[in-house]
Structures are given as structure tokens and as C-alpha cells.
Computed example of a mutant assay.
Amino acid sequence: MSILICTGSLFSEWQKNLENLTLGNLEHHQTYSRLSALSEDICQQNSAGTDKLEWKVFTPQDKYADKATQLFSTAQNEPIFVWADTNSGLFLNFWYATAENAKFVLFYSSPEHELGSYLKAHPYDTAIVKKVIQAWITRTRAMLTFFMRNRDHSVLIDVESASKNTIGVIEKINKTFDVELNKPKNTMRDHEEPIFQKYLAASLLFRNDTVAEIFDEVRSAATVICDSDLTIEDIQKRTENLIPVFQKAVTKHDQLVIDYSNANEELNMAILQLHKTQEELEFYYLKECETAAQYKKLVESLQQTPLLKLARLARLNEQSRQSNEIHSQVKNDGQL
């Protein structure tokens, strides 16, 4: 049986990458969940508080060793058993001692990737951001230290490489540990942080010498690194490289604001025209109602007046008209 123990940082999506590497959900095996529960219990007992961002590297009590060894033995019928746990990276020497012939796959991420992943899912808080950076330092340093002492039993892999070059990473793991992880049909799509979070992360890490030193060390020692990291650059250089990309994003944002403003202005004009048209329609509607009322009144009047009376009134009106015409004619002749 081959045992692969995998760990990584808190916020980068290394576990999703690992699921792709192993072709499916890792938690199907009962031993998997029991080991994770044991790891959590050990951390709770040996770390101060429940805040994982403040947990440090430690050595567990001896009482946990027998239980861990027993759990690993329950998976001995499996040709290969893969267990992934973020907490295990804080006490890797313990697992090395309790899991016979275990191999370790250690996923590291860039500080920008780790902090950017955190900022993508959480609101900005200065105090917590400092804790996230410190947690990255603690866990990355622990993985690096273990890897340097146990190169024959471990690989140190960049998270971005696991996304972009899945097949290459699997081939490296198979060759190093003489195992047979199957190659997936499709490589996992890379998940880039939004440019704002990435730029903000780089800015927050700017001139952090401790972070820059550890990251350069882990990349120099790594088994597999991202293609873009083949040339070692300090955080200041990476920040400078991000500036034109960020400025381009800002320019695009400004143009979108202008386009929105223009569209909003056109919308307001259309609304005003609509209101004007509505007022005209209301005016003609009221006129139509008034005409209809007059017509109705006329019809009612005609219906109530006898036809004979109407004829008499018409005849009298005609006689009066003719008399007026004769009178006018006589008057005109007298003047002549």
C-alpha cells in the first residue's frame, strides 16, 4: 500500500487541485474522515485558541501516535491511499513517524495568491490580513523545513502548477514515489484572482522582507513551480509588473462609468419624452370625454323633444330669417 499525505496553505484552492489529481472526491474512505477528525483534535489540544490563523508548529503528545498508526493500518488494503488535510502541515514530523513509508505532497502558493484568495472571499480587515500573512509564513516555512529534511519522501509543488499543468504534476508524483495516479482527461481550469484583489495583495506585501525571503527559498527548493515563476523576482518587482495591468483595469472601469452615465442620461431623456407623450394622451382623452358628454346630452335632448315641435321651431326660424332679409332689402332701397 502507498500512502500519500497532502497539505498546503489555508486559503489557496490546493485541495480542489488535489481532487483533480486523484480523479474525484477524496473523502469516500472512512479512514479519511477519521484521520481529519484526529488532526483537528490534536490541533485543538496543542494550539492556543480556536483561531487557525494563530496556530503555530508544534509536536503532538505521544498518546496520539498509536491511534494514528491504527487508522493508517485500516487502509492497508487500498493500493494507494490519499489523505489531504490543511492542519497536518503544522506537525508533519508526527505523520512521518506514524504513517509507515508515507509520502508527502506539499502544496505551496505565492503570498499574493494566498492573500488574494482570502480577500476574494472576505471583507478587508487590517488586523486579520496581518494574521493571514503570518499564517502563510508559518505554514510555508513548516513545509519548506520538512521538505529540505525529507526530500526522498516528499515533493513541494506550486498550487498554480497543479492547475495549469495537471498531467505534468501527476507524472512527477508518479515518478518520484513510484505510484500510479491516473491522468485526468481534462486539466483543471486555472482560477485567477480578480486583478483588484491581486494588486491589493501585492501592495500589502510590498517590502515585506520576511515574506519575500521565504517565498524565494520555497520556489528555489520546489519540485514543481509555475512556468511564470522560473525567473525569481522579489515582491517589489512583481508589484511593479502588476501596476500597468491594474491601471488598464482602472481605465476600463472609468470608461464603463462614462458609458453608464451616458446611458443613464439617454434613459432620463426617454423618460421625460414618455411623460410628455402621456400628458398629451391624457389631454386628448379628456377632450374626447367632453365631446362624448355633449353628444350624449344632445341625443337625450332630441329624444325628449316631439318631432312636430321641432318642425314648428324650424319653420319659425326660417320665417324669421326671411323676414329679416325683406326688412334689410326695404331699408336698403329707401336709402337709395
Rank of each mutant, 00 (worst) to 15 (best):
E171R: 05
E171H: 08
K172N: 07
I173A: 03
I173H: 03
N174V: 03
N174M: 06
N174F: 05
K175L: 13
K175Q: 14
T176W: 04
T176M: 05
V179Q: 02
V179C: 04
E180Y: 14
E180F: 14
L181D: 00
N182S: 15
N182V: 10
N182T: 12
N182Y: 09
K183W: 00
K183L: 01
K183Q: 00
K183S: 01
K183R: 04
P184I: 02
N186Y: 08
N186C: 06
N186R: 08
M188W: 00
R189C: 09
R189M: 12
R189S: 14
R189Q: 06
D190C: 11
D190H: 14
H191C: 10
H191E: 08
H191L: 12
E192V: 13
E192K: 14
E192M: 13
E193Q: 11
P194R: 07
P194M: 06
P194A: 12
P194I: 07
I195H: 06
I195Y: 02
I195N: 02
Q197F: 14
Q197G: 05
Y199G: 10
Y199Q: 10
L200P: 00
L200T: 09
L200M: 13
L200R: 03
L200V: 11
A201Y: 03
A201L: 07
A202Q: 05
A202H: 03
A202K: 06
A202T: 08
A202M: 07
A202C: 10
S203A: 15
S203Y: 14
S203G: 13
S203T: 08
L204G: 06
L204C: 04
L204W: 04
L204T: 01
L204R: 00
L205H: 00
F206K: 11
F206M: 14
R207D: 08
R207E: 13
N208S: 12
D209H: 12
D209L: 15
D209S: 15
D209W: 12
T210S: 12
T210P: 08
V211H: 02
V211Y: 01
V211D: 00
A212I: 05
E213F: 14
E213Q: 15
E213Y: 13
E213H: 14
E213L: 13
E213C: 13
I214S: 05
F215R: 05
F215G: 01
D216Q: 15
D216W: 11
D216L: 15
D216H: 14
E217F: 09
E217P: 08
E217V: 08
E217S: 15
V218R: 02
R219H: 09
R219A: 12
A221S: 09
A221D: 02
A222K: 01
A222W: 03
V224R: 04
V224L: 11
I225F: 05
I225Q: 01
C226K: 06
C226P: 03
C226M: 10
C226Y: 11
D227G: 06
D227M: 10
D227I: 05
D227T: 03
D227K: 07
S228Y: 04
S228D: 00
D229P: 01
D229Q: 12
D229C: 12
L230Q: 06
L230P: 00
T231V: 13
T231P: 02
I232V: 09
I232Q: 04
I232Y: 01
E233F: 09
E233W: 07
E233K: 15
D234I: 04
D234S: 11
D234T: 09
D234C: 05
I235W: 01
Q236L: 13
Q236E: 13
Q236W: 10
K237C: 09
T239P: 06
T239Y: 15
